[in-house]
Nucleic acid binder design. Structure first.
Ligand code: SF4
Ligand code: SF4
Lengths: 161, 161
DNA sequence: GGATATAGGACCAATTTGGTCCGATAAGCA
DNA sequence: TGCTTATCGGACCAAATTGGTCCTATATCC
């Protein structure tokens, strides 16, 4: 497949729609599901995942709901996707607690590890503000013709513990 | 999942083991399967796929088998994996003939396209010689500490039509 | 003509995924 | 206190995908 799971997509969408709620009021799952056309029950699970990952905060009880826990620029693409991907390993031997019987005599393995690290690095460099409000940097990226390279820059940022 | 399919892994392994056979004699599926510990029937299918992609050549009849169609340096990582991945799109809207009902009003979409192109670009830049005989460049990559960046360089090469 | 080996489709079993449901907990409010 | 709202989190089910098997052509060599 080499595609991110559907829950991950929903998570990205959720963050997009929650963009306005940082520091402000929270929005209930039912409302959010209505806005972004995602099945409520699934979105509920997704938001629970994001909550556990510390990306959104949850307020229980009447008038409660979910809101972003920190500004978009401090939420990495990787963080949003990670809770819903059991593995981000390109090949099996890169998965935790997994050995393939060829591991000893396999020249592919080390380069694979690099490639894997590379993709993860990329996912870390991208922050959600690039996805939610991409218009500024996207324009310049397209203009230069080196769209891809520009994307890879992913400006440095500090992450909370 | 965000992992390459098992058939793709087998394809990579097959290329690794066929590395010696460019221009030389071919090897039968049964023999190859014995060497690299892959179920014969599956490997057969995988090699058929690689054949169709023009990566290996096939010789039918007695004494026949498979061999590489061109040198390792002219086989891109993408080419090996492509026949077995129905999609290399990170999100659904990047798949061919697929529209998501949010496409019109989705700020994620364009950045996603960039990310997607970026990964594919990467898969194109990597050639199989980097995986089969990685010792030279891997050493220097590790030494500099910027393993990832080095990986991304992926030297330029000319591809047959 | 017989042996060998690829070509390719049909088919099945196991896993993974996407999605549903229901009870428990916690907070607000009258 | 009791009612309502809304998150929490597990159990569960159905569909899709994947990994793997098998069986019948077809081509080539001896
Ligand atoms: S060790 Fe080699 S054959 Fe085994 S999973 Fe890793 S890359 Fe593939
Ligand atoms: S259009 Fe937006 S919501 Fe739809 S698949 Fe693409 S990125 Fe996801």
């Amino acid at each position: 497949m080499f595609k991110v799971s559907r829950k991950s997509e929903y998570a990205l969408i959720a963050v997009q729609y929650l963009a306005a709620t940082y520091g402000g009021n929270v929005v209930s799952v039912t409302d959010l599901a209505g806005q972004c056309h995602v099945p409520v029950d699934v979105l509920a699970k997704v938001l629970q995942g994001l909550k556990r990952a510390g990306i959104v905060r949850a307020v229980k009880g009447a008038g409660g709901g979910y809101g972003l826990a920190r500004p978009l620029a401090e939420i990495r693409f990787l963080d949003v996707v990670h809770p819903f991907e059991d593995t981000l390993a390109v090949v099996t031997c890169q998965m935790p607690n997994t050995e393939c019987e060829r591991s000893d005599n396999c020249s592919l393995r080390d380069p694979m590890a690099l490639l894997n690290a590379y993709i993860i690095r990329q996912f870390e460099a991208l922050t959600m503000d690039m996805f939610v409000a991409p218009h500024q940097w996207l324009a310049s990226a397209t203009r230069t013709g080196t769209m891809v390279e520009t994307m890879s820059l992913g400006r440095r940022m500090r992450m909370p513990a």
